[in-house]
């Protein structure tokens, strides 16, 4: 039990440190166009890299994952919002696993 508690504590610390360091200590606005352009693209690049190909292995089988991803892409293209896209993908995976 104390081993698990120690592990949880360590995990919390190594999760907090990278989150806190830059935001807490960099108060100055950087004016470099290069740096500002770089940072503008971070959300898109990071989310894209985390999504694909990991999404293909997120449901236990490739077919349902592809169908879920397709549904998510279409719903996102029509800008349906986070929750609708997530629920739509979950439903698509669920029914394709039942039916296929």
């Amino acid at each position: 039990m104390s081993r698990i508690l120690a592990a949880v504590f360590l995990m919390a610390v190594v999760t907090y440190i990278p989150r806190a360091l830059p935001m807490t200590f960099i108060k100055k606005r950087l004016t470099s166009r290069f740096v500002r352009s770089f940072l503008y693209y971070v959300p898109y690049a990071a989310l894209a890299a985390m999504t694909f190909p990991a999404i293909l292995y997120s449901t236990g089988d490739l077919t349902s994952a592809l169908i879920g991803m397709g549904v998510a892409l279409v719903l996102a293209f029509y800008e349906k919002g986070l929750l609708i896209v997530a629920l739509g993908a979950i439903a698509a995976v669920f029914f394709s696993q039942i039916l296929l």
């Binding site: 236990g60 879920g68 991803m69 998510a72 919002g81 986070l82 896209v85 997530a86 979950i90 995976v93």
Partner: peptide
């Protein structure tokens, strides 16, 4: 299984 895709779908959105 189906819920495993939720986070990724949010990323796509």
């Amino acid at each position: 299984n189906a819920m495993g895709i939720a986070l990724y779908a949010m990323f796509i959105a």
